[in-house]
Each structure stands twice: as structure tokens, then as C-alpha cells.
Design a protein around this nucleic acid. Structure first.
Lengths: 121, 121
DNA sequence: ATAATAGTTGAATAGGTATTCAATCGTTCA
DNA sequence: TGAACGATTGAATACCTATTCAACTATTAT
């Protein structure tokens, strides 16, 4: 994804002082990658739609598929990603699997985004 | 990205009552698409790294390229996305273009994500 | 045991996207 | 004016990813 090359800016015009200060303050690469990873999960409208359903109620795969007008397969693939990233949890009951939000950080972040979008119209 | 198919779940086992309640409570598609769009911007580690630099100081393209070890071109491409989505703003001074964060919703959302990641270790 | 249904999974495909490369624009300075 | 540099841009490429399709598992009911 990222690769070093020649043209990295060897100029003398770089603001050395500021740059060094900023470099020292940066979080480590791993943390930044984790942040990006978390946001990537939210950065898909199918997953966003699934989450907005689960804000309202615990639902089975078939319910979600019905709400989104999508196949169970497509929904299940996305639920797998949400499961792996600990965004949703599930319980099995009979033939059905019920999904719900794993913790409320999720809805806080989501609601903050909605707020952001509405405030600057 | 999304497409209707036959297998959408025509089953009678769907929880009709709950589903209708949830459907009524859902935000409109456009809002959900906007939310996903916003998160998508954060869902790339290059952009996350750029933002974490801009949390610290206003910087020119060359500074950022230097900090990330990337070409000015690659950085500029990502800055364009951040500009278009109103996440960063810029001012031109001489030959250089200085970038900074557009509003502080951005850092609030970002910091909430960091918090989320650290809390559940 | 068999049929039916809920859900999952892997492979294939199609669409999306980040980086590179080369060309270009705009500004400054000699 | 022309050279140098910061920055942007478009096209090409290579990688990533969401959905489809078909096969499969597990559970329930007849």
C-alpha cells in the first residue's frame, strides 16, 4: 500500500523544527493502523446500514437481509467482518443467529458522526 | 455495490413486528451513505497518518511527505480527498500550500476511536 | 431418515482505490 | 525571461474488497 521512493522531498525548504516536533508527537504506526482499521469497518454503507438496524433491536440474519433488501449471503459476509472486529456479538437460538451491538462505544462514535454531518449541514 | 436478487429472504420466519418497527426507525439512505462516506475517509492509514500530523501543527505538503516518507504526489492525492470532504482546509503562501484541520469534530471523533481501541485493549 | 430452513463459507468476479509516473501549473528569484 | 521548486493532476497499474453463486453445515419438524 505504501512504498518509499526517491521523490520523498529532499528539499531544504521543509520546516525542520516543526517537522521534528510533530514527528516526536506522533502515535506509533500500529496505533494509527488500528484506528484506520476501525474506521474502515464503518466506511461501507452496507455495514453502516446493518449497524443502524442493530441500534434499534437484536435481529437475525434473515431480518437484516429483509431490511436491507439483500441476500443472506451478502449480509452474512459483512456480519463476519463486524464479528471479527468485535463490533457486533451474536447468540445462536435454534436455527437462527441473533446479532446485536457489542458495546456502546460503537453507537457513540456513530452518533458523533451523525452529529458532525448535521451540524455543518 | 448493492443489488437486489431473488434470494432476499421471502421466508415466513422473519420477525415481522420487530422488522417493521426497525424499518420505521431507520435514518434515510442518504444519511447512512454520508456516514459511511465520512468514515471511509478515515479508513485509510495514509489519511489517518496525515491527520495525526495535522493534529500537531499546520504543515505544507512537503512537510507531510517528509513525515510519512512518501512522495508529494501521493500525499497530494490524499489531501485532495481530505479537502473535498471538508476534513482539512488550506491556505496558499508563496509556493507553498499549508494544510490544517477544518474543524474539531474531526479530532473528537478521532480521539474517541483511540479511546475505544485502548479501553478494550 | 428426509425435507426444509437459517446461516456460513470459498471461489470468482466486478468495481473501487491508493500509489506511481510523467506532465503540468503557479510562484519566486536570479 | 527562464530556471527552480512546491504542488497538483490524469492515466496506468496493482491491489483490495463487496457481492454473487453454489456448496455446505446445523437445526427443526414430519
Amino acid at each position: 500500500m505504501k512504498r518509499l521512493t526517491k521523490d520523498v522531498c529532499e528539499s531544504d525548504v521543509v520546516h525542520v523544527g516543526v517537522v521534528e516536533k510533530v514527528r516526536a508527537a506522533l502515535p506509533d504506526e500500529e496505533t494509527l493502523a488500528d484506528v484506520a482499521e476501525l474506521f474502515k469497518v464503518f466506511g461501507d454503507s452496507t455495514r453502516t446500514r446493518i449497524l443502524s438496524c442493530l441500534f434499534e433491536a437484536e435481529l437475525c440474519v434473515c431480518d437484516i437481509a429483509s431490511l436491507l433488501g439483500m441476500t443472506k449471503s451478502a449480509v452474512s459476509h459483512q456480519l463476519r467482518i463486524l464479528r471479527q472486529t468485535k463490533v457486533v456479538k451474536y447468540r445462536k437460538q435454534g436455527k437462527e443467529v441473533y446479532y446485536s451491538l457489542d458495546d456502546d462505544h460503537i453507537s457513540r462514535i456513530y452518533k458523533m458522526a451523525l452529529e458532525h454531518l448535521s451540524e455543518d449541514n
